[in-house]
């Protein structure tokens, strides 16, 4: 700048008035956008959840949200918060309204970030019958084999998660074993080269099932109605 700087004084009231005006315009815009998109976002979230649940529980046609606490199981209203100490799960029903199974989320620390999976549970046989990845940032080509590796996914066709007679824990904790050494139905055969991610899935499922199954199994009959 070549011209001398002249001290300019804008009255404070004008500054405040300008900021207030701009802030009001912006506020109106944001509220408008929120109101306009809220329904679409809620619908999107519902579709995404349904798609994830249907994937792990084939044949399901509708999903209901529940919370399991030490006091029993209660349906969870949309948008309601989870009760203290509760575990969230989804009950899935087929066209005729028969219980197809239960889905719940499991999370374990992976290589890059938390790996979150949804697992499908067959209440009749007390086994996990499928998993789907909800969120992960694992290394492409290595950790993301948990989605594509058929041998790994075979672990979750009938993974044993029976609850003991005292209803306190699983009879056998879900455990990830070295690739090729799986001997029992509660073990998960890790992917060679992606052990950390495999273990994250296994540990997550174990943590979640140890918490959820003892709360859920005594009340499973309530879901069938």
């Amino acid at each position: 700048m070549s011209e001398p700087i002249q001290p300019q004084t804008t009255p404070g009231s004008k500054m405040i008035a300008t900021m207030a005006l701009v802030a009001s315009i912006c506020g109106v815009l944001i509220v408008g956008a929120f109101e306009g998109t809220q329904d679409a976002i809620a619908e999107n979230k519902r579709i995404m959840l349904e798609r994830a649940v249907f994937k792990v529980l084939p044949g399901a046609a509708s999903v209901r949200e529940y919370a399991a606490t030490s006091a029993g199981i209660q349906p969870l209203a949309a948008g309601a918060s989870l009760p203290e100490g509760g575990v969230k799960f989804y009950a899935a029903y087929d066209q005729a309204g028969v219980l197809k199974g239960v889905a719940a989320e499991a999370a374990g620390k992976g290589y890059a970030d938390v790996v979150r999976v949804l697992y499908g549970y067959d209440a009749e046989r007390q086994v996990i019958i499928g998993i789907g990845v909800v969120f992960m940032r694992e290394t492409p080509g290595i950790g993301d084999k948990i989605i594509t590796d058929q041998a790994f996914l075979k672990n979750f066709e009938a993974l044993d998660v029976r609850v003991n007679a005292e209803m306190t824990a699983l009879v056998n904790a879900v455990k990830v074993v070295k690739h090729g050494t799986k001997t029992s139905p509660w073990q998960i055969d890790a992917i060679a080269g992606a052990t950390v991610t495999s273990k994250a899935v296994g540990r997550g499922i174990n943590d979640s099932a140890q918490k959820l199954m003892p709360l859920l199994v005594p009340h499973i009959a309530e879901l069938k109605s």
């Binding site: 815009l29 944001i30 956008a33 929120f34 306009g36 998109t37 679409a40 976002i41 999107n44 979230k45 995404m48």
Partner: peptide
């Protein structure tokens, strides 16, 4: 913020 809402509405 507007874009944030719009993208959520378009594709999660």
């Amino acid at each position: 913020t507007l874009v944030d809402y719009l993208i959520q509405a378009a594709s999660l």
